[in-house]
Every structure is written in structure tokens, then in C-alpha cells.
């Protein structure tokens, strides 16, 4: 039986967004609110409550199953070893170091992106969410935040491993700039990745389509971050102030612009992917 038959009739999400209502039941909530405490499970939670619950669910599932983050981290370390043998170099710096680090992080993040909605699609998470009277955008934000969390843990493992295994220069002078660039890049990867994951998860060939869709969409992130990071990983890196006022500024602006534009696009189209 298809999921659609078990889901009650809902108002179209784009209509809801225009009228400012979260769901049909949100109207009922405002009538109930004066009489019922918000802790009452029968009352529909607001956006913040739904977001907290969904994010907690995501992180709890990941903590209990450990399906994504350990795999992503181990994958990143393995790729560094592969790069060592493929390039036949003991240490790298500059452009090459930036490229290796970013390609590794990108490939590892694809693993997380591919798995982001698998449990929801296979174990009825989508049906459960659609039956709950909450704003669909809460799911988008919760998934994107969870993915940012996974990426942060991945980078906590992968960046020191990269510095130990491959980087020919010291990581410390580059660290503040690297953190800024990776934070902006993570935001872009999480936003575009959540959309790609939602698009791909309910297709026949999701393992293939996820990376195929994600890689071209994430190329601007790679362009921006690798150009911004490569002077930092050079043998003689510039001071942080000189780096910021130099060429890095426009790459940081590009990354921020990508995050903003993709955030808006994904916000606008996400509801249409959750209708059944």
C-alpha cells in the first residue's frame, strides 16, 4: 500500500506558507493553547519545539546506531592514505594540500548525505512525520543541523589526521582561517546535501543518484573553499589579517552567497518533496 493512502488529506504546503500557517492542525492548536499546557502531547508543537524534537531524534539515532559519523571519519583517514600512495608524496602543501583536504571532506560528506534520510524512507519516518501536525521546514532545518553536526565531528577527526599524515607545514597558523572557511563550506554542504538527499532517497537508484546530483551542485563550494584555503596551507602562509583582506575575502563572500542562495532555494522547494 502506498504511503499516500494512509496519510490524511493536507492543505498544499505552498498555500500554507503563504498564509503563515504551519499545518491544518495549527489552527486547532491556538484554540487549545489557553486551556492546555504545551507539554500536553496532544497539542501540536511550535516550530522550535518540533525542531528540537527532530534534532534530538536525529542525534539520538546516530548515537545509538553510529551509522554515519564513524564511517565518514574512517573513510576520510583511508582517503588520506590513498592520496599518499597515489601522489607518492610524504608531505604536501599549498594548492595540492587544500585540494586533497577538500576532496576528502567532500567525498566523506557524500556518505553522510546519502544516509541522511535512509531510515526515514525505510522505517516509516516520513509517514510518521507527515501525520504529525508540524511545519515541514522543521524537518529541513533539523536534518541540515544534524548534517552540520556530522561534518563538524568529521572535521575534528579529519583535519588533525591530515595535519599528521600529509601536511608539510604547521597547521596552527592556518587554523583560524581554516575554521572560518570550513564553517561556511559546511553550511553550504548541509543545505544542498539535505535537498539532494531528499530528492534521491525515494528513487530506485539512490546510492548512485545522490553523489551524481551532489557533486556538480557542490562545485562552487569547492572552488570557494580551495581558493581560500590554499594560501593558508602554503610553506609561508600570510598573516591572518593579510589573508582576510587579500584574495580570501571574495571567496568567503562567494561561500556566504552560496549558503544564502541555496538556503532560500531549499527552503522554497523542500515542502514539495514531502507531500507523500
Amino acid at each position: 500500500m502506498s504511503a499516500r493512502t494512509s496519510v490524511p488529506q493536507r492543505t498544499q504546503p505552498h498555500v500554507l506558507k503563504a498564509t503563515g500557517q504551519a499545518r491544518p492542525l495549527a489552527g486547532a492548536r491556538s484554540e487549545l493553547e489557553p486551556h492546555a499546557p504545551t507539554a500536553n502531547p496532544r497539542v501540536a508543537p511550535g516550530f522550535g519545539g518540533a525542531l528540537r524534537a527532530l534534532l534530538r531524534k536525529e542525534l539520538l539515532v546516530e548515537l545509538r546506531t553510529l551509522e554515519s559519523v564513524p564511517g565518514m571519519s574512517l573513510f576520510a583517514v583511508s582517503v588520506f592514505v590513498v592520496f599518499h600512495f597515489a601522489l607518492n608524496r610524504a608531505s604536501i602543501d599549498g594548492d595540492l594540500a587544500a585540494g586533497v583536504l577538500l576532496v576528502t571532506l567532500l567525498l566523506a560528506s557524500l556518505l553522510g548525505i546519502n544516509r541522511l534520510f535512509v531510515a526515514d524512507a525505510e522505517q516509516g519516518g516520513f509517514d510518521g512525520f507527515l501525520l504529525a501536525p508540524v511545519n515541514p521546514t522543521a524537518l529541513l532545518v533539523a536534518k541540515a543541523l544534524a548534517l552540520i553536526g556530522y561534518l563538524l565531528v568529521l572535521e575534528l577527526v579529519a583535519v588533525p589526521a591530515f595535519a599528521l599524515l600529509l601536511l608539510g607545514t604547521s597547521l596552527w597558523p592556518a587554523l583560524p582561517g581554516l575554521i572560518a572557511v570550513l564553517a561556511l563550506a559546511d553550511l553550504g554542504v548541509a543545505t544542498a546535501g539535505t535537498l539532494v538527499s531528499t530528492l534521491a532517497v525515494r528513487t530506485r537508484a539512490r546510492d548512485l543518484l545522490g553523489p551524481l546530483l551532489a557533486l556538480p551542485l557542490l562545485i562552487p563550494v569547492v572552488i570557494g573553499s580551495s581558493n581560500a584555503i590554499s594560501p593558508l596551507l602554503a610553506v609561508h602562509p600570510p598573516a591572518l589579517g593579510a589573508w582576510l583582506t587579500g584574495s580570501a575575502a571574495r571567496w568567503l563572500v562567494l561561500l556566504a552567497l552560496y549558503d544564502l542562495v541555496f538556503g532560500l532555494i531549499v527552503y522554497a522547494v523542500f515542502d514539495f518533496l514531502l507531500e507523500d
Binding site: 551542485l217 562552487p220 552560496y258 532555494i265 531549499v266 522554497a268
Partner: peptide, 19 residues
Amino acid sequence: VFAITAGAFVPMNFIAVRL
């Protein structure tokens, strides 16, 4: 949804690469 996302990506990608 894909057509909209990719349609918006076209100008953005050109800006990124042209930088």
C-alpha cells in the same frame, strides 16, 4: 524541484567560476 534548483544554479555557477 530539480528544474527549479538547477535553473537557479545556472547563474550562480557562472558567477562562481567567473571569479
